[in-house]
Computed example of a mutant assay.
Amino acid sequence: MVVLATKVYVEGDARERSLDALRSLVANEIEDLDVEYTVGVRHDDFAVVTIEGDDEVVARNLLREAYGEVTPDFEPGETYVGTLEGWDDEGFVLDAGEEVRVPADELGLGQGSPVQIVERFGLVQHTPMKFVYGGDAGGDGDDSESDTDGETNAHRLADEERDRLYDWTRGAGRVNVNSATRGEVRATVNRAGHARDIVTVERLGLLEQSIVCKDETDPPGLLAAIGSYLPAEIRCVIP
């Protein structure tokens, strides 16, 4: 079994559509392997794939590489994936199967409070993010531990994650959305008459997408155009 670092938190018909989308994504990764699999959702909304067959080890590794894995065990200094569950003046709170708090001074995303950083980088709740675990192995998810020298050994955003977010601010602009599959976001952009104003819809997680704008497209204008069609959290990234 692999617990993927992406969540299914919508309900009703939207949940069924999300599970259908998840099945398609999993099939794209492992359909050529000699395995049988089922897709489900854990009690905390994380997606779960149960795999059996001769190629099950390969299949699990492919899914871990594509989506990250929620694991019960953490090793200090290793990189993991958690979903962005909240933020306040003290930092970010990620869900990696347990609460992981990344202090404000370990975000590494420039000046400003965590709330201002969320706005600047257009972050929406539940976005999968890579972090480096800084506590003791098997710790309780506190935001920091003290090492033998008495120094703070806090969790921090991974360098790869910081680079990704900075790249967002160097492009033509983006509109980030949660609570919708990639197909639903694409259909919404088309319905609003803005298909020619975007480059692509980039998948961040199962239900978190990033609409990459063309150079001449105004991200706030695109947000205003699609906002009424999507019951979602939506934020802009403005270069």
Score class of each variant (00 low, 15 high):
15 R>F: 11
29 E>I: 00
74 F>E: 04
112 G>R: 10
150 G>C: 07
230 L>H: 08
185 V>Y: 05
134 G>M: 04
40 G>F: 07
156 R>Y: 09
64 R>D: 12
208 E>S: 08
234 I>E: 14
163 D>Q: 10
22 L>D: 07
103 P>V: 00
74 F>M: 03
125 Q>C: 00
191 R>K: 10
31 E>S: 15
117 I>T: 11
225 A>N: 05
44 D>Y: 07
81 V>T: 15
150 G>Y: 05
110 G>H: 12
32 D>G: 02
155 H>P: 08
127 T>Q: 11
35 V>H: 12
140 D>K: 02
227 G>F: 01
211 I>V: 15
90 E>I: 05
142 D>P: 05
197 D>S: 12
219 P>W: 05
145 E>P: 02
89 D>L: 04
146 S>R: 14
172 A>K: 00
65 E>Q: 08
177 V>M: 06
93 V>H: 13
84 L>Y: 09
156 R>C: 08
52 E>K: 09
205 G>Q: 12
38 T>S: 14
108 G>Q: 07
159 D>K: 03
27 A>D: 15
68 G>K: 01
213 C>Y: 06
70 V>T: 12
225 A>H: 04
227 G>R: 14
112 G>Q: 12
171 G>A: 03
30 I>A: 01
50 T>V: 10
62 L>M: 10
77 G>S: 01
4 L>M: 15
211 I>E: 08
79 T>S: 11
199 V>F: 02
55 D>F: 02
162 R>G: 02
21 A>D: 14
113 S>M: 07
94 L>M: 03
48 V>T: 11
65 E>M: 06
120 R>F: 04
69 E>V: 12
112 G>C: 04
181 T>E: 13
26 V>P: 14
97 G>T: 03
145 E>T: 11
124 V>W: 02
113 S>I: 06
62 L>T: 08
1 M>D: 14
142 D>N: 12
106 E>H: 10
217 T>Y: 06
45 D>F: 04
77 G>N: 05
172 A>H: 14
12 G>S: 04
211 I>L: 04
24 S>Y: 07
163 D>A: 00
183 G>D: 15
174 R>V: 10
24 S>E: 15
53 G>Y: 12
97 G>M: 04
187 A>Y: 06
126 H>F: 03
31 E>W: 04
229 Y>W: 11
50 T>G: 08
33 L>P: 11
89 D>Q: 06
8 V>L: 14
95 D>L: 00
27 A>I: 02
26 V>C: 10
32 D>N: 09
114 P>V: 02
28 N>F: 03
125 Q>S: 08
229 Y>K: 05
65 E>C: 01
64 R>K: 12
112 G>F: 13
93 V>K: 10
187 A>R: 13
19 L>G: 10
120 R>C: 04
131 F>Y: 15
46 F>N: 02
37 Y>N: 02
49 V>H: 07
182 R>H: 14
88 D>G: 15
149 D>K: 06
128 P>G: 11
152 T>S: 03
78 E>D: 15
208 E>R: 04
79 T>Q: 13
109 L>W: 14
138 G>H: 13
211 I>F: 06
151 E>L: 01
99 E>G: 09
51 I>C: 08
134 G>I: 01
